[in-house]
């Protein structure tokens, strides 16, 4: 199956003529997002995430390289009818919520009773149905983000591109959005999710990519990244806490981390010491740890 979103060796630089120091936003950046997945797009500020999204939507052009969205080159207007987008700092016109959603739906050439019906549906989805007649100008930031999501969903998109969709939401709203994303995935939609909320990404994304310095520094299935193949967590009972390096005693058991290659040897040693193996599992790491591993060198460089 062809990728839904594909960046091919894309380079993008800002400034540099007479105005300011050139900034390399993307440096031969390549990525493929498959149909039906929720893809987490991570990276520190200035890593090039938003630039990549803006290129995909045709807001700007790449200096080098090319990209395809739903099989068509970036910037193709007809293709965007099948795409939904929520910008990082959502900016919308001030008018009643229902009218606003209908306006954006109309821009995708939707109309009539179908559009009005769809408008009601998406306002329900983002929990804004009671505020349908309220002017968006009086909305809180969290409500703005939700109405932004509603306008992104109004055309029932095949691909949903979200740039920080939950940053201003309270925990309840976050759960609603998370469930909504999973539901969209269940319907076969593809979600491209850029976020700093790593715990959210960890919960919903099938794959994640970590951007760093305009390049993709890490890419993989979320489960693979979170569960290390190289290291295992061993929990044993009846052994001394100092028997293995890094051992921690808690609730009558001792836990410690080992390399997967030494697993057999370690287990035999536990038995030889008269102990009992409670569990051996691949070491679970958080997305935050992975994120820091990728970006730490940069942080250290900045610190220096």
């Amino acid at each position: 199956m062809a990728p839904v979103l594909e960046f091919q060796e894309i380079t993008k630089q800002y400034g540099g003529w007479f105005t300011r120091q050139p900034v390399q936003a993307l440096d031969r950046f390549s990525l493929s997002v498959e149909a039906g997945e929720i893809f987490g797009f991570l990276g520190p500020n200035g890593a090039g995430k938003t630039t990549a999204i803006h290129l995909a939507l045709g807001f700007m052009r790449a200096d080098q390289g090319r990209g395809l969205m739903l099989g068509r080159p970036f910037g193709d207007a007809r293709t965007r009818r099948r795409v939904g987008f929520l910008a990082e700092n959502v900016a919308l016109y001030h008018r009643p919520a229902a009218k606003l959603v209908q306006f954006y739906g109309g821009l995708n050439s939707l109309g009539g009773a179908r559009l009005r019906q769809r408008s009601r549906e998406v306002l329900e989805l983002v929990n804004l149905a009671p505020d349908a007649e309220r002017n968006v100008g009086s909305f809180s930031r969290g409500m703005l983000q939700r109405i932004g999501l509603a306008q992104a969903l109004v055309n029932d998109p095949e691909l949903l591109i979200l740039d920080e969709p939950t940053s201003a939401l309270d925990p309840v709203a976050r759960v609603i959005i998370r469930e909504l994303l999973l539901r969209l995935k269940g319907e076969g939609k593809t979600v491209f999710l850029s976020s700093h909320l790593l715990s959210e990404v960890e919960l919903v994304c099938d794959r994640v990519g970590v951007m760093h310095g305009g390049r993709l520094a890490k890419l993989g299935r979320t489960v693979d990244l979170l569960h290390s193949r190289e290291q295992s967590q061993v929990v044993a009972r009846g052994i001394d806490v100092g028997a293995f390096p890094g051992g921690v005693a808690s609730d009558g058991v001792v836990s410690f981390t080992i390399t997967t290659t030494s697993q057999r040897e370690v287990l035999e040693r536990i038995w030889s010491l008269g102990g009992e193996v409670v569990s051996v599992n691949p070491l679970k790491r958080s997305l935050e740890q992975i994120f820091l591993e990728v970006t730490q060198p940069e942080l250290e460089r900045r610190g220096k």
Binding site: L57, G58, F59, A77, R78, T79, R80, R81, V83, F85, A87, N89, V90, A91, L92, Y93, Y104, L107, N108, S109, G148, Q151, A152, N155
Partner: peptide
Amino acid sequence: RTRRILAVLSKGISRRQ
């Protein structure tokens, strides 16, 4: 300036339109 153009141009309309 208001960045409202992003939500508009993210829809299925060309720059000419």
